[in-house]
């Protein structure tokens, strides 16, 4: 089924229930779907479990969701940054749960969920605090830790362009978690700068096939850098 095309960010995120697990794309601010997060904040959903590489920067996007205490728990690899003050305050006050995951394990757990894999053995983290209490196994002389798949109710991601079938192309390092999160959520909502007619994207260039995308919303970047205009022309 072709994805639903929402008329606004608010319409795109409508129906996200309290207590949902929400994957949010982006590495730092690159690829972070700011407008969808703002709409989620305005929609009032609370008690959320958020999966993201970080825990918000400065006073925008995910950071505001944490500031308003809508996030009960965050699953991430790198919460502590110079401008992660809203997370820092919530964490020190004991008002947010943290599951710290090595970045590659985070990515692979998401990928596994989308690929129907229940768990996998990874060498990353073996012998460290982050593997404490987890099952381990030696395979061909290498020690591995069992890590479980990580899925979500909703994924909010950002891509550059979509076609009306939901096929997505991304831009540079803003791709990061988008393609894997799209596969791992029951409902994937993608914000894009342009929705083009079917047949306009070269099938060889599609990164996320439309089968993984449920809702699209076109949101033009507020201030487009010169280099981006050139790139997307």
């Amino acid at each position: 089924m072709a994805p639903r095309i929402a008329g606004s960010a608010a319409e795109a995120v409508a129906g996200i229930a309290d207590g949902s697990t929400v994957m949010i794309g982006g590495f730092g601010n690159a690829g972070q779907p700011m407008e969808l997060i703002d709409a989620l904040l305005q929609g009032g959903a609370t008690g959320l479990t958020v999966v993201n590489n970080n825990a918000g920067q400065a006073d925008e996007g995910l950071a505001l969701l944490i500031k308003e205490r809508r996030v009960a728990k965050i699953v991430c690899s790198f919460p502590r940054q110079a401008d992660s003050w809203h997370f820092d305050a919530a964490y020190r006050a004991g008002e947010i749960g943290l599951e710290l995951v090595p970045q590659g394990n985070l990515a692979e757990r998401i990928r596994a969920a989308g690929a129907g894999i229940g768990a996998f053995f990874t060498p990353t983290g073996y012998g460290t605090q982050l593997a404490a209490g987890k099952e381990t196994r030696e395979i061909d002389g290498v020690n591995y830790v069992l890590e479980h798949a990580l899925k979500a109710d909703v994924a909010l991601i950002k891509a550059l362009h979509a076609d009306e079938k939901g096929n997505l192309v991304y831009r540079k390092t803003a791709r990061n978690f988008g393609p894997i999160m799209a596969t791992a959520a029951t409902r994937t909502i993608a914000q894009v700068e342009e929705i083009v007619p079917v047949g306009s994207l070269d099938p060889e260039h599609v990164i996320t096939p439309g089968i993984f995308v449920d809702t699209l919303v076109r949101l033009r970047a507020a201030a487009t850098p010169v280099s981006r205009q050139k790139e997307s022309a």
Binding site: R80, V101, T124
Partner: peptide
């Protein structure tokens, strides 16, 4: 009292 953060450190170390 530190806020823990690991990023890609453990993956980079052994990869």
């Amino acid at each position: 009292d530190a806020i823990p953060a690991v990023g890609g450190a453990m993956d980079l170390a052994i990869g």
